[in-house]
Simulated scan of single mutants.
Amino acid sequence: MDFGLSLHASTATDIVAYSDADWAGCPDTRRSTSGYCVYFGPSLISWSSKRQPTVSRSSAEAEYRAVANAVAEVSWLRQLLVELSCPVAKATVVYCDNVSAVYLSANTVHHRCTKHIELDIHFVRE
């Protein structure tokens, strides 16, 4: 009982996600590990932590890849809830602790140095 997940009954139907990444955290390959967790109301319903498939050139890139993974999971969960006749009316909030990654998601101008993550940027905005 001390190590289980607690699911709480609630009328709240908002979805909130948190993402994070460690930049070049693996000492052997210098690949980053990214993770996210998703809450439906007060209950944790989805989470993931895994090594990124490529080496990130900056902490912003590693964080943005983590955000992209969280957004992909949230998109899938929202579609699942629609199919279960429980659509979510509010927009989903995805939290990220990297200012550069947040700036990339809000900036409509792509700079030459960020072209290698352009697809993730388009995916998160959409």
Rank of each mutant, 00 (worst) to 15 (best):
M1D: 15
D2V: 07
F3M: 10
F3A: 09
G4L: 06
S6W: 10
L7F: 12
L7D: 03
L7A: 02
H8Q: 15
A9V: 09
A9K: 09
S10D: 04
A12H: 11
A12G: 12
T13Y: 11
I15N: 02
I15T: 03
A17F: 04
A17L: 06
A21M: 01
D22W: 10
G25N: 00
C26D: 11
P27F: 14
P27W: 09
D28Y: 14
D28T: 13
S32L: 06
T33L: 14
T33W: 05
S34N: 13
G35H: 11
Y36F: 07
V38S: 00
F40N: 00
S43I: 00
L44Y: 03
S46M: 01
W47L: 13
W47Y: 15
S49D: 01
K50V: 05
R51G: 00
R51S: 00
R51Q: 07
Q52Y: 01
Q52A: 01
P53N: 07
T54M: 05
V55I: 15
R57L: 05
S58V: 05
A60D: 12
E61W: 06
E61V: 11
A62D: 11
E63P: 02
E63V: 09
Y64E: 04
V67A: 04
V67H: 04
A68E: 03
A68V: 04
A70S: 05
A70K: 04
A70V: 03
A72W: 01
E73A: 08
E73T: 05
E73D: 03
E73G: 04
V74K: 11
V74G: 02
V74T: 13
S75V: 12
S75A: 09
S75R: 08
W76P: 02
W76Y: 04
W76G: 00
W76L: 09
L77V: 00
R78D: 00
L81K: 06
L81P: 02
E83K: 10
E83L: 10
L84I: 02
S85E: 10
V94K: 02
Y95D: 13
C96N: 06
C96V: 04
C96K: 04
C96S: 09
N98D: 10
N98M: 12
N98K: 10
S100Q: 12
S100D: 08
Y103G: 15
S105H: 13
S105D: 12
S105V: 15
V109W: 01
V109P: 09
H110F: 15
H111E: 14
C113N: 14
C113S: 12
T114R: 13
T114C: 11
K115S: 15
H116K: 11
H116Y: 15
L119V: 15
D120Q: 14
D120R: 03
I121L: 08
H122V: 04
H122M: 12
F123K: 14
V124Q: 02
R125N: 05
E126Q: 13
E126H: 13
